[in-house]
Amino acid sequence: MSAESRLLTLLRPFLRLLPPDAALPMDADLGRLGLDSLQSIDLLMALEQEFGVTIPDEKITVESFSTPAHVLELVK
């Protein structure tokens, strides 16, 4: 599975306002789909586990959790 599709699978459970059958494009607005700042902490932990990386602090900004594309940047 590509990093992109692994990421989208990981993201879905965090997006309470995204219907299960709806598409999740890489430029979707994650805040609008239900990701809040507290959940983005859980997402960060889940990312490190799924991709087996340690994301350096300086890479994380407020924009990091704005879209799937930005989240993907964190694990690249």
Binding site: D36, S37, S40
Partner: peptide, 12 residues
């Protein structure tokens, strides 16, 4: 600040 900053980067 802004509410979005109260996520993972808040301590920093």
């Amino acid at each position: 600040g802004r509410p979005e900053m109260s996520g993972p980067e808040l301590p920093r």
